[in-house]
Write a protein that binds this DNA or RNA. Sequence first.
DNA 1: GATGAATGAGGGTTCATTCAT
DNA 2: TATGAATGAACCCTCATTCAT
Lengths: 194, 194, 194, 194
Amino acid sequence: MSIQQRPKYKQIIDAAVKVIAENGFHRSQVSKIAKRAGVADGTIYIYFKNKEDILVSLFKEKMGQFVEKIEAEIKEKKDAKEKLLTMVKVHFDQLAADYPLAIVTQLELRQSETEIRMAINNVLKKYLHVIDGILEEGKQQGVFRDAIDIRLARQMIFGTLDETVTNWVMNDHKYELRDLADPVGDLLVNGLSR
Amino acid sequence: MSIQQRPKYKQIIDAAVKVIAENGFHRSQVSKIAKRAGVADGTIYIYFKNKEDILVSLFKEKMGQFVEKIEAEIKEKKDAKEKLLTMVKVHFDQLAADYPLAIVTQLELRQSETEIRMAINNVLKKYLHVIDGILEEGKQQGVFRDAIDIRLARQMIFGTLDETVTNWVMNDHKYELRDLADPVGDLLVNGLSR
Amino acid sequence: MSIQQRPKYKQIIDAAVKVIAENGFHRSQVSKIAKRAGVADGTIYIYFKNKEDILVSLFKEKMGQFVEKIEAEIKEKKDAKEKLLTMVKVHFDQLAADYPLAIVTQLELRQSETEIRMAINNVLKKYLHVIDGILEEGKQQGVFRDAIDIRLARQMIFGTLDETVTNWVMNDHKYELRDLADPVGDLLVNGLSR
Amino acid sequence: MSIQQRPKYKQIIDAAVKVIAENGFHRSQVSKIAKRAGVADGTIYIYFKNKEDILVSLFKEKMGQFVEKIEAEIKEKKDAKEKLLTMVKVHFDQLAADYPLAIVTQLELRQSETEIRMAINNVLKKYLHVIDGILEEGKQQGVFRDAIDIRLARQMIFGTLDETVTNWVMNDHKYELRDLADPVGDLLVNGLSR
DNA sequence: GATGAATGAGGGTTCATTCAT
DNA sequence: TATGAATGAACCCTCATTCAT
């Protein structure tokens, strides 16, 4: 069931993002999310199995859209280098455009129980596959070095982007995240090119 | 006050690492740490202000040693590239040699309140300065590109190492982390070199 | 309003017996009874004032039939002793023939609030009157001792039957309840006879 | 650990009896019991595993004493009939002397989950063994009929006593329970004698 | 310094009941 | 009549911290 067709489902997820971004993960009680969503506490449990399910669903919905957007934009590029640069740009663009979401995904959701984080990791796999695809294409096109280990390169790319965004969030987005897309992209491309 | 001079202080910190590694952050109550350390619950509060203080102190002590070891090893190298490669190697070596500590720093401690993680980040600053030093030296030596933004490069380096170790921990250290030191180091050096 | 004329009323009561027998009193939510009866949750409240009313009505309907059956059978007997023996037999017969009902009346309904049990006790009064009638008749006929206190004898009879059936239910009806009718009847008659 | 040696344990159990007798089982929250016992809510959980454990322990302690008293008194009697009459007398005496306890055991505790009632039944087994002992002795002494089925007779005795006390409680102990000991005892003895 | 019994605030979840359709 | 989505009050238990000994 998508976000569009169930208004309360969407309301609750959006409320959860705001409440967690504003109060921090541990001060975000279900009752606070319900109040912010304009529904009763019990209504939450019509749409979600439990509190954990809100968080995982939140991540699925938001990251689903996130990755779809990235996939759509890189599909139009031919060159693996351009795909990578585009990916970095769209990655930063989306989080810069939704600061509360950035707080939640970069900081707050990581405080959750190991179980939730496992579910979150599953959602992330799709993104990691996109990265792997670019890397393999780059090797076939001869723009990335053959010797590159896909897994390590993927960890470098994801680790770099993640660390960059987390630092931006922790510094209260004092600077423009979008301005970092090009230099960070260059850094990564440089590390991979022949 | 150093670890050596206060036996119970050290006992408690070491107990905390073991308990958190074995039980996970959320199942690591103060009473469990006390029991494992062989002291009474109340004794904890003679050596630490509160539970948060145990975690931050743990990180300070362990990361202090961690960074000192890295500093000592790279001091003997002249070339910035070699310093970087050595740093990666010693970073991986130390965590591979102490798996419980790796679990705690890579996974469990990140579940703590945002405030604790801010304190932890302060402790990390010393490590980040070491990285910055290598980068600046590399630019002066002419081995790293002039155009490189120190902050971004530092985030790439730290993000890559962190992501690599986290993946290794999450995969139950099924493979040898030490084997990744050379390829990961090469990847990073490649990204920075002229 | 009798069971016959309102199909949904009957459906709901029969569903309640099944649901409570299968799930136990505390796991028998109104919504579960509604689903089993094939009606919407809200429909329940057209036929019953509240959940308590379902339980009391259930007891009224089922115990009404139960006592009517007993009255009909003993009417055909002349001798008070025979009436008593018949009563025991029909009491056991009916519950042995409807095990779910036995579970509900002997075990599950007793977990209800004291108030509901008071209402249930009111329903039982009719049965207790039947017992009293037999006892008085027996004293008039000279087959039961004059000195017998009606109230105490009634409590002995009802207590004995109740305890016997409850034990049978608690032992998962491993043995034939009907086989106990004669020996239990004899025991009681012996206690009352001159 | 007996009641005497742990003052808080005893306080909590005694408070539970009073609170349940006054408020009814379902309105007896742990916090209410704690307040009545003069301890903090958390203290309850030092002495009891959970709420259920309070109830089962309550029953064990109180019924343990109850049965011990009965055993001690009948030990002094030789004749099985006298033992039975004494048992009835001491049974009624004890509950008449502690009306709150009578409310709790006869009415309120029966509203508990099936699991608790199973534990309670285990405690009762000791009492049922005492009854069985008297019955067997009576048969050996030739005062009770040989044909008597021990299990059925035990159910008659326990059922009669239980029903009698429950009726007394439900009638707000308007009459003297102790006055019923002799007539009820006679009724039972009559039912068993040759 | 060391102990450990005692404290008490805090929150996820259930479910009987309502009411707009 | 019938529906079923929505409501919101109610409660057991955990665990960081204290303090009398």
